[in-house]
Every structure is written in structure tokens, then in C-alpha cells.
Design a protein around this nucleic acid. Structure first.
Length: 914
DNA sequence: GAGCACTGC
């Protein structure tokens, strides 16, 4: 077998060698160059012809009929709107309870005063001796009641620390209270001093130790044993006061008309000024806090001010799909039009717009993609980039693109809407564009820090939850953790400890939520809390921006999150737990002030907040693989990427890596121009390697199979469901899908079997597969299938053929190759890095000599995920410019090359052969 | 023998 392999390698090598020597004999360097140049020009011509065909086809298709809103997507959106209305209705009772509570507290205060006065008067007026027995008893009773009431208050005072408001400074300077001398930053003694200073102004022992002990000492001993000391350091001021709660619930009771609601929004007062500012300036930064109504109102104001005349649209981008849909639905309702007609939205898999659409909401990624067919945004009169402070990859790239466009499209208005922190920065980027400030609407949140750092924050979370539960008024708790493990661990601990306390404490509902949790379990967090009980929601970052949960009064923030980082030197991704940024911490705190005044408990010290947390999270563009983004920019005709106007430029290595990879894949020619292949690849919303794989499937006549594999690889790895109690069953179910050849073919198996079951939910359930992921794979597959036709590729299938399928995969992923070395370890072909097959792979125990992997992820080790066995000779077939025969010799061969992989110069030289 | 935060096209 080994011999045979060696022989075939030799043949390959010879053939290859022969080919190149023949070329050398036949042509002089000049001829070679001329040929290359001719080839390049021919390719460019073909590319432009292809682009022209695309444009033509797009124009023919644009005729959309307004009727198409009678589709599933419209119903979906309508349903969502209805749900939103229900939410609002369900909020009413809560608001009522809150105002009732406040009313009662006030009433109690009055009654106590009354009682006190009563007794005083009574004692003053009547001497003890002159009273009857009944009168004496009554006076005693009154005194006892008063004493109890006062004791009760005293106990509460220890809990409700004296709040103080930070003096109203300039906006955006809430945090400036930290006035530590620069010189004092370093030593720990100064830190302690500072902490103490902060403490002297406001301190309390969380859990009201004394009071609680008086109430029922033995009950809480268990909890108080390890109580955490918190210090209140500041209040994140809201602009709603307590009385406003009553006001809102009153007005809401009246069932505000749409017009009234619009007028009640903070932005309403700024309407005319805003329109004026937009007319005067081409670019405007809108600094709007949450709840100002900017997202729904500004497009309507602009529409009313005539910005939709001349058949031009107003566009507004959102970072999330749900936001784009629900905001569009809301605006359609406010304007009294049918969603999809005058007001519409466009997101991946769903285009709910027509040619009548004047206000169009979309995700930032959709606009990014729209640039390919309309690079000058000709059909828009205004473009609003909302939530710009979130700094998604797409908004960051859009900044550079729109900044360029406004230079020559002087009629285009540009609005960048952002939270407070970044407004100045955006203004600076857009040539000192003016900033327009709109206040928001939110409740104050008291912020507490721990006195000392907490070593075990999971345990600290559990203790804090119990402390809040026994000592604080009702209201749900939201805990931010980093991932599924932590959530499960915390859930276990909390359940156990609250069970031990039994009925000494009120009911505590513990609910986890993270993205990979099945949707029906996620839905539980939205169910109303039973009376007298308290909900604790253990969430990942999903609750920071994506989900809003009502009735949260308390937030516990350990100060960490998981972040994906891409190392552009090694091409490896790693998911690591990192401290959050200040911006993130404040976003989390804000989650406590949505329905009433709230409290946020930070499990780190105030000093750590002030000195150890970064201001803002590193923008996505500096942390991820830019392959697809660079390809898009190239397709948009941006030649000089190194000098592209980024708000925050990505690391130089990231760009270089992306360009090199595109070049090796054949998407760019040696001049750095986009090739026809590259132009076709850019049409796919996938990583360039996957794009290349899809296009290569044409040659290997297996586009159907490759399409499925691409779709399955696109769903994140939450495909297999593995509940702890049924882990063995889940593992066997999984192994049943294993295919000869590796994980890519296993994924193909899974999809095909699911398709055969007629896309059954039951089938997924029986096989421990997440139905949601499969549905997504189907959506992706449908979309990619449409794009295959768009780039003129025939759909073909070769069901019994796995070699061709694997060759097509290799044609895209020849960058991702590893070989088994002598020591039984895999080394990557490119960087000679030691890597390991992931234990979940079907090849985990097989260890083939040559493998291709879909991705490399660092966790406890450098793991290859989604691995497929290949033959090294395929590499010469699919990427002869990238691999040389001698590199691919068997590692058992004595003539094993010392250097594996290539230097840049070799690569550039190899390009000549293209 | 590990264990995947969150979006988006």
C-alpha cells in the first residue's frame, strides 16, 4: 500500500516536472510575460462581461410588485408586532404594581407620622392616671405599633442606603467622578486609600446584617456567613423620576393614540431643529440615548419633510435582523400603511420591500451587500446608520464607503446615530460633522462595587443572588456570565443552595439563557414571574443587546465575557474570557433601569472599573478574519486597501493575510486586480475559501453536494444536541452519521437524511440534532443555490462519488492542510504548526496521513474542526501554483523536505504559472 | 478525549 502510494506520487512529480520543463523549453521569459499579460487582460474582459450580465439580469428582476407583501414574511412581521403589543399590555400591570408600591410607602410614612403625633398629643393632653383601662391599653397598642413601624424602617434603611446623585455635569461625563491623581495610579496602598474615600461617602453592608439577624437570625445565617460587601459608588442617572412611573402608567391606561405616543417621545421636541440641521449639513451625527425614539421617528420626519420625493428612499441600517423587522413594522403601523409597501425592510432570506418603498430598514450587512449592485446608493436620498457605536464589521466598512460617496453625491444626506461615548470620534472621522444631541428616557440605576476583588465570581454571583433575594424588594435579577458551562455551574449551585434554605426564603426561579439553548427553553424567560416569586436569569452576552427582558430590577455583573480573537499571523481563532469594557459594563447596568429604578452590583472594585477596564470594546474589524470583507472591497473597485479610510484600521497583517489568501485562491491576479473568479466569488456571502469551493464544484460536477456541505458548515457548530443525562445516546446517534472520508461527508449525510425525512422535526429530535440549525442550513442552502445560478453554475449531482466532492473541497481549502508527522502529531502544511484533530471529529481515532480542516480553533489545544481525509496528489491538481511536488512527499520518505510551506517570494514566483 | 460569546451576509 505504502509502496503503491509512493509510486503514484512519483508519477505525479514526474508529470509535474515534465510540464514545467517543457514550458521552459518552449518559451523565453518575454514570451512567458506576454502570455501572462494576454491571459490577464482576457480574464479582466471576461470579468467585466460577467458583471455586465449580472447588472442586466438584476435590472430585469427589480420590477417588484407591491402585492408580494402578502407573503409569509409579512405575516411573520405582523405576528411580531402583535406580540410587541401584547408585551406592552403585560407591562401595564407591572407598572401599576410599582406605582402602588410607591404609593403605599408614601402612605405608610404619613401614617407613621400621624400615629406619632397622635401619641404625643395624647400623652400631652391626658395624664396616665386619668385614663381608663381601655384607654391605657389603646395607648400602649399605639406605642407598640409605632415602635414596630420604626424598627421596620430602621431595618430597611440599612438595606436602602442613602442614595446620592452625582452632580449633573456635562453630558457623557458621568464617570468623571473618579478623580484620582495620575501619580496615585500605581501602588496598591493608594488604591486602598481611594477605595476608602469612596466608601466613606456611602457604605452599607449588603444584606443588612443586623436587621436581618433581628428579623430571624437562624434563617439567614447560612447566607450571611459569606456575604459580600458592596460599596455604592455612583448612580447612573436616569431622566425619569419615581413619580414618572405613576404618570406613565396613568397615560398608558388611557391607551395613548399613536399620535399621542409619537408626541410623548423625547425626540418630538427636537423635530424642527433636527430637520433644519439635516437640511443645512450633509453629514450629521445623532447622539441619542435609548428610548429617545430616534430609530422610528427620524425617517418619518424626513419623509414628511419631503426627502422621499423624486422616487428616492430613506434607508436605515440596524445591526440585528429582529430590530430591522420590528422597527419597520412599528413605523408602518404609525404611518397607517401596509408593511412592505411604503415602509419595508430587507434582511437576509427576506426582502419585504417593493418599488413603492420609501422608508427601508435593513441590516447593516444587507446594505453592505447592496453596494455591489448599487455602489453610489443612487436610489437613496438619506442613509441612516443606526447603533453605530456597536461597531460591527459591516458598519465599520460602511463608514469608509459612505464617507467616500458623500464627496461626489452632494444630494445624499448621511446620519450616523450613536450612543454618547463615540459621538465625538464619529464627528472627527466625518470631517467634524456637527453632533445633534437627543435625550433619552430611562430610570436611574444605583451602582455598587465590591469592596475587595472576588476570586471566584461564580460563587460570588450565587451569594449575591441570595443576598438580594432575602434582603431586597421583589424584582427580577439578571446575571451576566460568559458561557454555557458557567451558566450551568451557577444554576446547579444556586438550585442546591436555595433548596437547602427550603421555605425559609421565597420562591426563586432560576432560568438560563444563551444563544444555543433551544428556543422553547429560551422562551421561558419571558413568562411572567408568579406572584411573590423572583426570577433569576443567568445569561450570556445575549442579554446585553440582543434580548431585552422586562421587569429586571437587579443586575449582577462579574465583568467578563467571551470574545473571539483572530490571530492573523497564525490564522487561528481563539475564544477567550476577557474583562469587559466600560461601555459594556454601562450597557449591562442600563438593563436594570428599563421599567423602574434599578440596582447594578458589579463584582469588581470601583478601582478596577476606573483603571483596569478599557473604555470601549475592540471593534470587530480588528479581531476577525477579513477574507470576505477584503474580497467585497476589491469587488467594489477599491484598489488600495492599505490606505482605505477606516475609522479604526484593522491590523496590517490581517489585510496582508487576506490579500495573500485571495491571491492564492486565484481571486486576485499578480497585479492585485480582481479576476473573473474573484468577481464570482464575491457574490457569495461566505469566506473566500468556501466561495472557491462552491465555484470549483462546477469542474467536479458535484455542485449539489458541495452546496449542502457549504450550508452545513455555515451553521455554527451547535448542530448536535447533547444533554448531559443522555450523553451516551446522543453520542451513538451522532456516530451513526459518520461517513467514510470525514466530517464534511458526515455533514452531507446528516442533511440528506433530514431531507429524506421530509425535513422532519421529529427526525431531528430522535437523532439529537438541533432542528433550528437544520432549518438554518436549509435557508442558507436555498440562498446559495440561487447565487450559484446567478454566477452561471449548473447544478449537478454525483451521489456515489466522494472523491470528486472531496477534491472540490480541497480546491477551496488547500490552505488548510495538515499532515501526520513521525511523532504521531499533525503539522499544518503552511506554518508547520502542531495541531490536533478535534475529539468530536469522525476521524479522531483514524488519523489519516493527510487531512483538510475547515477551521482551526484554540481552546485547550490547537484543534482542527471538521476534518476530511485527502490525498496529497490532489493538492497538485487543484493548487499547482501553491504546492510543489517535493513538499508533498510522504513523510516516511527520507527525502522529506526541511521547509514546508512557502515564502512570499516563492508564492509570487509560482503565480507566473497561472 | 473535548466542551463553541454574539451578530450578520
Amino acid at each position: 500500500m505504502g509502496k503503491h502510494k509512493e509510486k503514484s506520487h512519483k508519477k505525479d512529480r514526474d508529470r509535474h516536472g515534465e510540464g514545467s520543463s517543457k514550458r521552459k523549453r518552449d518559451s523565453s521569459p518575454e514570451d512567458e510575460y506576454a502570455k501572462m499579460e494576454k491571459e490577464r487582460l482576457r480574464d479582466l474582459k471576461e470579468r467585466d462581461e460577467f458583471a455586465e450580465r449580472l447588472k442586466q439580469r438584476d435590472q430585469d428582476k427589480t420590477k417588484k410588485i407591491a402585492d408580494k407583501t402578502n407573503t409569509k414574511s409579512y405575516e411573520e412581521a405582523a405576528k411580531r408586532l402583535k406580540m410587541e403589543a401584547l408585551d406592552r399590555d403585560s407591562m401595564l400591570p407591572k407598572l401599576r404594581i410599582e406605582s402602588r408600591r410607591q404609593y403605599l410607602a408614601k402612605r405608610k410614612e404619613e401614617k407613621v407620622d400621624e400615629l406619632e403625633a397622635d401619641i404625643r398629643d395624647d400623652e400631652y393632653l391626658f395624664d396616665e392616671g386619668s385614663l381608663t383601662k381601655r384607654e391605657r391599653e389603646e395607648r400602649e397598642y399605639k406605642k407598640r405599633v409605632l415602635h414596630l413601624a420604626k424598627e421596620h424602617d430602621k431595618a430597611r434603611e440599612l438595606v436602602n442606603i442613602q442614595r446620592y446623585h452625582i452632580p449633573e455635569g456635562k453630558k457623557g461625563e458621568e464617570e468623571k467622578y473618579v478623580e484620582v491623581d495620575e501619580r496615585e495610579k500605581v501602588p496598591h496602598s493608594e488604591q486602598r486609600k481611594w477605595e476608602e474615600e469612596q466608601m466613606s461617602s456611602a457604605q452599607f453592608r449588603f444584606g443588612a446584617k443586623d436587621a436581618a439577624k433581628k428579623r430571624s437570625q437562624e434563617d439567614y445565617d447560612m447566607i450571611l456567613d459569606d456575604e459580600i460587601e458592596f460599596i455604592q459608588a455612583l448612580q447612573k442617572p436616569g431622566n425619569l423620576k419615581k413619580d414618572d412611573i405613576e404618570e406613565i402608567s396613568e397615560t398608558m391606561k388611557k391607551k395613548m393614540s399613536i399620535e399621542d405616543t409619537k408626541k410623548s417621545l423625547p425626540i418630538y421636541a427636537f423635530r424642527d431643529d433636527l430637520i433644519k440641521a439635516i437640511k443645512e449639513h450633509q453629514v450629521l451625527i445623532i447622539e441619542g440615548e435609548t428610548g429617545s425614539g430616534k430609530t422610528t421617528q427620524i425617517p418619518q420626519y424626513l419623509h414628511e419633510a419631503g426627502f422621499t420625493e423624486d422616487k428616492k428612499k430613506i434607508g436605515c441600517t440596524q445591526p440585528r435582523r429582529v430590530a430591522a423587522m420590528s422597527v419597520a413594522a412599528r413605523v408602518a403601523q404609525e404611518m397607517g400603511v401596509k408593511l412592505g409597501n411604503e415602509v419595508g425592510y430587507s434582511i437576509r432570506f427576506e426582502d419585504c420591500t417593493s418599488e413603492r418603498t420609501m422608508i427601508k430598514y435593513m441590516t447593516d450587512g444587507t446594505l453592505h451587500r447592496e453596494f455591489l449592485s448599487e455602489p453610489d446608493l443612487q436610489s437613496y436620498s438619506v442613509m441612516i446608520i443606526d447603533e453605530a457605536h456597536e461597531r460591527t464589521l459591516h458598519t465599520d466598512i460602511l463608514f469608509g464607503l459612505v464617507k467616500d460617496i458623500v464627496r461626489f453625491r452632494t444630494d445624499l444626506k448621511l446620519l450616523i446615530s450613536s450612543a454618547t461615548l463615540d459621538a465625538e470620534k464619529f464627528s472627527g472621522f466625518f470631517d467634524d460633522a456637527p453632533i445633534f444631541r437627543i435625550p433619552g428616557r430611562r430610570f436611574p440605576v444605583d451602582i455598587y462595587y465590591t469592596k475587595a476583588p472576588e476570586a471566584d465570581y461564580i460563587d460570588a454571583c450565587v451569594v449575591s443572588v441570595l443576598q438580594i433575594h432575602v434582603s431586597q424588594p421583589l424584582g427580577d435579577i439578571l446575571v451576566f456570565l460568559t458561557g454555557q458551562d458557567e451558566i450551568e455551574a451557577c444554576q446547579e449551585l444556586l438550585t442546591e443552595r436555595s433548596r437547602r434554605l427550603g421555605n425559609k426564603i421565597k420562591e426563586l426561579l432560576i432560568l438560563p439563557v444563551y444563544a444555543n439553548l433551544p428556543s422553547e427553553m429560551q422562551a421561558k424567560i419571558f413568562e411572567p414571574t408568579p406572584p411573590g416569586a423572583r426570577k433569576v436569569i443567568l445569561a450570556t452576552n445575549i442579554a446585553e443587546t440582543s434580548l431585552t427582558i422586562d421587569n429586571i430590577i437587579y443586575v449582577i455583573d462579574p465583568g467578563f465575557c467571551k470574545q473571539n480573537n483572530f490571530n492573523s499571523k497564525t490564522g487561528m481563532e481563539s475564544l477567550v474570557v476577557v474583562p469587559i469594557s466600560k461601555a459594556s459594563a454601562n450597557q449591562r447596568a442600563g438593563r436594570a433601569g428599563r421599567v423602574a429604578a434599578g440596582k447594578c452590583f458589579r463584582l469588581y472594585t470601583a478601582w478596577a472599573y476606573a483603571h483596569e477596564l478599557e473604555e470601549c470594546t475592540v471593534p470587530e474589524i480588528q479581531r476577525i478574519n477579513l477574507g470576505n470583507a477584503v474580497l467585497m472591497l476589491k469587488a467594489l473597485g477599491i484598489r488600495d486597501l492599505m490606505n482605505f479610510d477606516f475609522l479604526d484600521p484593522p491590523p496590517h497583517e490581517s489585510l496582508v493575510l487576506a490579500l495573500e489568501q485571495l491571491y492564492a485562491l486565484g481571486a486576485l491576479n499578480h497585479e492585485g486586480e480582481l479576476t473573473k473568479l474573484g468577481r464570482r466569488m464575491a457574490e457569495f456571502p461566505v469566506d473566500p475559501m468556501m466561495g472557491k469551493m462552491l465555484l470549483a464544484s462546477e469542474k467536479y460536477k458535484c455542485s449539489e453536494e458541495i452546496l449542502t456541505i457549504a450550508a452545513m458548515l455555515s451553521v455554527n457548530s451547535s448542530l448536535f444536541y447533547r444533554p448531559k443525562d443522555k450523553a451516551i445516546h446522543a453520542d451513538t446517534a451522532r456516530k451513526n452519521f459518520n461517513a467514510q472520508g470525514g466530517d464534511h461527508l458526515t455533514l452531507l449525510n446528516v442533511y440528506n437524511e433530514w431531507a429524506q425525512s421530509d425535513y422532519s422535526t421529529q427526525w431531528c429530535f430522535e437523532n439529537y440534532i438541533q432542528h433550528r440549525s437544520m432549518k438554518r442550513a436549509r435557508d442558507v442552502r436555498d440562498q446559495l443555490s440561487g447565487l450559484m445560478q446567478r454566477v452561471e453554475i449548473k447544478m449537478e449531482s454525483s451521489p456515489s462519488e466522494t472523491i470528486n466532492v472531496r477534491k472540490a473541497i480541497t480546491a477551496g481549502y488547500f490552505y488548510h492542510i495538515a499532515r501526520l508527522g513521525k511523532g504521531g502529531q499533525y503539522k499544518t502544511a503552511k506554518h508547520n504548526q502542531t495541531v490536533t484533530i478535534h475529539p468530536n471529529s469522525s476521524l479522531f481515532e483514524e488519523l489519516p496521513r493527510w487531512v483538510l480542516y475547515h477551521e482551526l480553533v484554540v481552546t485547550t489545544k490547537e484543534f482542527m474542526r471538521q476534518v476530511t481525509e485527502i490525498e496529497s496528489k490532489w493538492l497538485l491538481e487543484v493548487a499547482p501554483h501553491y504546492y510543489q511536488a517535493r513538499e508533498l512527499e510522504d513523510s516516511t520518505n527520507k527525502k522529506m523536505p526541511k521547509v514546508v510551506g512557502k515564502s512570499k517570494s516563492q508564492l509570487a514566483g509560482a503565480a507566473g504559472m497561472l
